[in-house]
Design a binder for these strands. Sequence first.
DNA 1: CCCGCAAAATAAACCGATTTACTTTTTTTG
DNA 2: CAAAAAAAGTAAATCGGTTTATTTTGCGGG
Lengths: 349, 349
Amino acid sequence: MASNNKVRASIHDVARRAGVSAATASKVLRGIRTVKIANAEKVRLAVKDLGYRMDPLASGLRRRTRQIIGIVVPDLENEFFGRLTSRIEILAEEAGYSLAIASSHESEVRERKMLERMHDWRVAGTILAPVRSERGAGATVMKELAMTGALVDRVMANDTFDTVTVDNVRASARVARTLIEAGHRHVLLFGLSDVSKNVRARISAFQDEADAFCPQMSVDVVLTEDSVEGLRGSLSDYLEHHRPTAVFSLAQTGTLSVLSEFRRRSIQCPQDISLIGFDDAEWMQATYPSVCAVVQPVALLAEQAFARLLLRINGQEGFPVCLLEQCHFQERESLMSVGSVPLAHTGNQ
Amino acid sequence: MASNNKVRASIHDVARRAGVSAATASKVLRGIRTVKIANAEKVRLAVKDLGYRMDPLASGLRRRTRQIIGIVVPDLENEFFGRLTSRIEILAEEAGYSLAIASSHESEVRERKMLERMHDWRVAGTILAPVRSERGAGATVMKELAMTGALVDRVMANDTFDTVTVDNVRASARVARTLIEAGHRHVLLFGLSDVSKNVRARISAFQDEADAFCPQMSVDVVLTEDSVEGLRGSLSDYLEHHRPTAVFSLAQTGTLSVLSEFRRRSIQCPQDISLIGFDDAEWMQATYPSVCAVVQPVALLAEQAFARLLLRINGQEGFPVCLLEQCHFQERESLMSVGSVPLAHTGNQ
DNA sequence: CCCGCAAAATAAACCGATTTACTTTTTTTG
DNA sequence: CAAAAAAAGTAAATCGGTTTATTTTGCGGG
């Protein structure tokens, strides 16, 4: 039914109609000025008459690199990566590139496959948000293939690529300090058991801050595999025997689990236990209580990562840089001082 | 720093090393059997030795169509489209295609741009989830360009392309019946004011069902522009003067607004007002109360849309079909009978 | 008017694959 | 064993562009 029966005009058709050579037509289309104005005009007219559109993929053949930027994220169903990708798509287009988006579905073997595909596509550069079980595998692939790239989120310093990530240490320290000041002396850190450097950084920064400013504080850590049942189960087991005055959830899915486990056990939040989550989401304003969260500057991460990549594409040399962006701490109702009133009353505004 | 200094082997390099012609090498790589086993083996060896990888984009040049499927969705930050895209990515790869993902960012002009880009890329087929202000603009572009494609979500029957969507009529009727049976006689339908056929279908199906089974029911409709402030503002105005016993939110963002407006006004849900939302989200299990929702079969939508597209790509003729998939009704705490106890106690399990 | 130089234009090669049209080799058959 | 048929192999054309090397044109000066 629908198919390419109507043949598309090629640059040769355009050249013929304009009465010039294909090389000249190509020059006009690429904005090269060594063409007589009259001829340039004839070419532009022919383009219009024929409804000519370039094949951007064939165009990169000779150049051996295409006007495409790749991005590989671990999970497109995740709001965070959705926003990141969405922003970078716009930035790429503003810079004259198309964005090729791929998800590694949190799998290292898929991550490799997708990176190889980007390489096969001769992209100009690739942004990688590594999978959770980050052991640098993705970066290694990119290095092997001599790709131009940048790393974002879930990464620490890398010796080959520029990296852009959130300042987990300061954000976690800030949470620790907030809890200390609110009188909390027994806190649970709750998250995913993966080897993610991000989560490890959050934990140790919290512990360091606690050690430094409140040595008597007791900090429990519970980590689980990534499944809704797993998360809630291990939390449930923990709460059977312990009763901290605050929970610091190290990732967004965890926050959801904490909240529903509180409800299942009829634990009043924040009266019985306060809650702070790493990573904000829209729904956190609408829950009861609204959830206090560390807000990651997603747009900024996107912009910085893209800017660094663009510099490298344009040939900038020099040692890889490691950018840390600051998080914002959003106070909401789920946090209160021990034996006191809630710190915040309304979720937003 | 990182760049393509190490030249990649081409199929001619492979052919030379294997001592055969490029045509033969090409045959081997495409799995065509008219090659002597010994030669095929030599080619495979050469591929291995040289670490040869095909350029999949150049490969489609002669064929005039590439092993790529395009998808254009209105919003990648949206969980629904994230899941849709994610699923289709897997399906496409299983079928031997790469998926090119683009977001129209809810803009009709961008939608056209992205569709044109897919066409320029010579994709084998394109799946389109139209922007909200659907007046068929996207489908018209695809028709103009004689593209092979399928439409999903936010569409009614189309005379050119196969469409896959949710059965809004039955789902809304189901909600209406549920509310009627629970004794509700004054209901607010709350949603976005756009001209989305989806939302219009949901409204009229609800009204029809109410007319048929409970003529005395009073159904209010409040529609707003799409902004968090707009949503909450118009809801707030409405609640100033009216007090329905139930709200049916016609879209996910609306549900969030309803919930937080309830909280701001200290309206007890479901004791004062029940709430049902169209479109489920993970967080709806964790709110208080957990939110009763119409669950869309995202994976199924993805599978059907992809299956239809694949048939058309493979040359199936015939009138466009219009598939309606059924939603599931998820009971949760936010719904109760008028003057009675909640219908459901726990969110999940 | 002719020379020299710069500007503009172009034919042809090239990028990396596929496909066509043709040739060569092998197998089957009478 | 020769002729016909089938199988295998390949040179060359092709897809749609860009780039290179070369040629043509335009222009000022002697």
